[in-house]
Design a protein around this nucleic acid. Structure first.
Lengths: 340, 340
DNA sequence: AAGATTCTGAGGTGCGTACCTCAAGTTGGT
DNA sequence: ACCAACTTGAGGTACGCACCTCAGAATCTT
């Protein structure tokens, strides 16, 4: 009944504890064949390392950093709250997660920040920042210095770096499908509103959205993306302009994570026929919109899941363990007012 | 930087390690005021118990049982596979999960099985079984004997027992909303097919479905639920009968977790106009149906998440810890072919 | 045979647990 | 008032398991 310990393993393999330990931790100083024998015995007697004991002995603690933009919307606020929340659970596991906010606009600042990180003090960084050559290089350098990195929500991955977030192309396609189906046989134009189309996630969503609409709903016509740049005046202007020049807008796809601004403006400008509105991310605002019927559907990713997944992945990589792939796949969730 | 240990706590509170331990574990033999002082110092110095060390010292292992029906569909198979998968991760944490299958039809057998469990050998049971007074009493008795219980997927909860699964009423409502929206202005009858309507989850789904259709889609008419009882012949008979007497069936809601049988029969019987089909649970079969377009949407709950959540909850209750409520809430997922 | 490589064995570490021991305080009988 | 018999409070410490270091022994190079 008792699970075999390193002692049993040492005895079974006919080596000492020290050697077993070296094999288990991939340390040098053990002959090839000895390594093989030990591994065979691990299989044979079903040895499983006791993580509690290992962590205790290492007296290892893990410090993870979430690097996110300084200026943000409600979704970002939610994400930050989830990091704090995750911390309460992590603490009993000798892990800590912190948030650092940074001006996303300047790639150099991001690179500098990453370069300044001390591998002694930080074990992993989850980065949510627009892609740039500088950031990519800084991340690669970080990994060389022994700090794990994962890309969060958007941005590019390089090498064996992991991406934590939804498949944005599929998310866009999902939005497209819902739009098409909810509109049934109505014909008209679709407005697509983003904060900026420079971000990879926005581009991918747009691509997925277009693919479905163009393939299956020829009676719908997707207009060029409008960019708000987070500016109320600009938003109002481009929206008014578009609504004025197209009388037959029957659907609006808000593909950024900040639905608030464009939605308020749209409500204010009142297109004649109520368009189907599909937005991204669950925030107090979009939730209220869904409840009131202003928004017809939300495509979301659970920020709590994102945070926990990022932590689990960084932790596993620190320990050179495998993760459960199925657990780390972030779901594209569809929210209606019924399944809020 | 170093996290305070029991030693620091003992020093701070002016007591010995043993006393600290007694306070931490609610053991008797410590004066009221001493307990209070220790608790105050815990707050003051920010002591957090190191779970790894605690479990190591206790040399505690956890054994959890998943009690599921003997006869089952692909969803059940998936669930069982997830338990096995979870085991690989749990092992390093000194936890084990096992599956026990039982004839769900006989409440007495379930009760007997539960009564026979040894608290020495089992720490928690996740039960997926139809509700019955016998089962409820057996569960209550189990908890009294120190075995944690959670109710999985369907069934009633009593006392402070936790339910792990989706809100079936909301799931039915979600199906109803999708059905209504996908059908747009089409008018006609809706077929509802279940394995049995005796299970609470089926009833709740039906209720939620009806609520939405009746409130918002008066042009649709929900027919009485058809029961398959898992019998191919019976399924074909009732389906043929219904299709024969109603020429205007425009939607089918499959509210059981076994969509396979009715779907095959429907495909075979071919209603004239392609109805919108909404089913529950993701299985290889329903996934293929969604891809091919036979099924229009799936309402699902992730079996991996169910299993892990059940384990986390049982584990937390064993350790008298709080769980992260937001993590344990099982999402009602909507699957289209785009976000599979 | 000198030197390099591989391996051993012992012992300490981390942190909380649990059992055993001892001291102080309480009650009761006479 | 005094001592025995308890109850209660608190200290001491071996233990769980893997990690890690280090001196020294065994084996392999060339």
């Amino acid at each position: 009944m008792m699970r075999p310990t390193t002692k049993d393993l040492a005895k079974a393999a006919g080596v000492s504890l020290a050697t077993v330990d070296r094999v288990l931790n991939d340390r040098p100083g053990v002959r090839e064949d000895t390594v093989k024998i030990v591994h065979e015995m691990i299989e044979k007697i079903g040895f499983i390392r006791n993580l509690s004991a290992a962590n205790l002995a290492r007296s290892r603690s893990y410090r993870f950093l979430f690097l996110v933009p300084r200026t943000g919307d409600q979704f970002l606020a939610e994400l930050i709250a989830r990091v704090a929340e995750a911390n309460t659970t992590l603490a009993s596991d000798m892990s800590f997660a912190e948030v650092a906010q940074i001006h996303e606009s300047d790639p150099h600042q991001i690179a500098d920040y990453l370069s300044a990180l001390d591998p002694q003090a930080v074990d992993g960084v989850a980065i949510m920042a627009p892609e740039s050559p500088q950031a990519r290089d800084a991340k690669a350098q970080l990994r060389r210095r022994g700090i794990e990195t994962v890309t969060l929500i958007s941005g590019q991955t390089s090498g064996d770096e992991v991406f934590v977030g939804i498949d944005n192309h599929a998310a866009g396609a999902t939005a497209g499908r819902l739009m098409g189906r909810f509109l049934a046989d109505r014909r008209g134009k679709l407005m697509v509103i983003a904060e900026t189309m420079r971000a990879r996630d926005s581009l991918e969503r747009r691509l997925g959205f277009d693919e479905i609409i163009n393939a299956d709903y020829p009676q719908l016509n997707v207009l060029p993306s409008l960019e708000t740049h987070g500016d109320p005046d600009r938003t109002e202007r481009v929206l008014a302009q578009t609504l004025a020049s197209h009388s037959d807008i029957c659907g609006i796809y808000l593909l950024g994570s900040e639905a608030r601004l464009p939605l308020q403006k749209v409500a204010h400008l009142r297109p004649e026929a109520k368009p189907i509105i599909i937005a991204h991310e669950r925030t107090p605002f979009t939730e209220a919109g869904l409840r009131s019927g202003q928004i017809d559907a939300l495509i979301t990713q659970d920020p709590g899941h994102l945070v926990r997944s990022a932590v689990r992945i960084m932790r596993a990589r620190c320990d050179r363990r495998e993760v459960l792939a199925s657990q780390e796949k972030i779901r594209i969730e569809i929210l209606l007012s019924e399944n809020l």
